[in-house]
Amino acid sequence: MGVLEINRLYKRFGHHEVLNGLDMNVPEHSIFGFVGQNGAGKTTTMKIILGLLKPDSGSVTVCGEKVTYGETKTNHNIGFLPDVPEFYGYMNPVEYLKLCGEITGLTKKQIKRKSDELLELVGLKNEKKKIGGFSRGMKQRLGIAQALLNEPKLLICDEPTSALDPIGRKEILDILFAAKGKTTILFSTHILSDVERVCDHIAVLHGGKLVLSGTLSEIKERHRYNGFVLEFENEKTASFFENIGELKRPSISMSRSENTVTVLLSDRGMNGQFLIDLLSQKRIVPLKFAALEPTLENLFMEVVR
């Protein structure tokens, strides 16, 4: 059973259909990348999970409990990091975490221990400044600390990296990666390299439903091209390889840039073995021989087209 299960979720704003029968299942202890274009409905989905928006129909369960709109008990199992987290500017981080802890019903001792631990994790331990003077990255890190305070079973992050500089992004991703194992993370983004860096599961939202979902390796496997990249010592060898007569047939397309040749085989019966045999026959040793990996970007473009 998944930590989060979404069944046939519909939501429209006026005439604009945002969610159109969304089904999603987030397994325990995964880092789940929830990908979609801007305006695809990622934030709407998350707000429905948190009981902040009312779905037109469909149901959401968190840890086996059904989410009800408005007051929902399921939020006790959830930590939420909004895309641009806002805090009370007149408090300092320790005061803010204390407030959060009191609301979730932790004891004084637990609050002290957890806040120390989390501020250490997000690198705000010695920050005595008021939150009002924080940079965006610092607010984002405090956002993670407050989201993890009640040891949630599900951590929901809404585009946690989209507004940050490269260093800030790396830090946030590292923190999220460190939280894996303790909790399940649902992480929305439109930055595909972030997904590739930390996620193990991925789902692409388009047109109000998932157009692609599964583990990252599974998806790549499913969409693998029958293509190879060969790198040679110099351009001369590359050019020689490119012009071998055996490769001149309609089912093979090739392209060369300097000493790298990309070969795409559209004939199902042909595979890498054919190229290796050819290389050995011609007594050429390539520097590199690699199967062409589908990039997430290509996949994404393909499914949202």
């Binding site: 006790h76 805090f87 959060c100 009640n150």
Partner: peptide, 16 residues
Amino acid sequence: SKGTLINLLTKGLSRT
């Protein structure tokens, strides 16, 4: 409008 309440509501603070 600032969204400061969202954090606390998602921590299980009741709206009442």
